[in-house]
Amino acid sequence: MTKILISLTVNGDLHELAVSGHQRLLDVIRDHIGLTGTKEGCGEGECGACTVIMDGLPVNACLVLAPQADGADIVTIEGLTVDGTMSLLQQQFVDKGAVQCGFCSPGMIMTAKALLDGDPHPDETAVREAISGNLCRCTGYEKIVDAVLSTAAVLASQGEVA
């Protein structure tokens, strides 16, 4: 089994790793780099729990082979906190009660982050469309949508980053 050398940037840090062809980006993030905030739900791109932002766009980390991510710039849920302080978006998830069991939250928040980065003022339809690939079995989505919309509202008033 030939190991493949890859380098990828995760949350601003450059990692050089030797991976196997069968490893997925999800495995590298969790097992090699040790960032376990990114969750594995279905492992087939249906649930969105493993969503990370790759080169600016949300992707299912379970659908990307690790060598495919060579050279990529990845942001995971851990990349949103600054010095242990939650980002505005994360804080809104807490404040609005958008987290119950929490398993979908990292992926859900990464999709919402990518949405807000591209469109700081999405309407409810845009939010629901964006997160349609992120399954949540607890909240019924209402509070999640509230959290994303209220983040957008705060951004509009303060001109901050999600």
Partner: peptide, 9 residues
């Protein structure tokens, strides 16, 4: 097709 994450790939 699929969802945003899938369409990106």
């Amino acid at each position: 097709i699929g969802c945003w994450q899938v369409r990106n790939l």
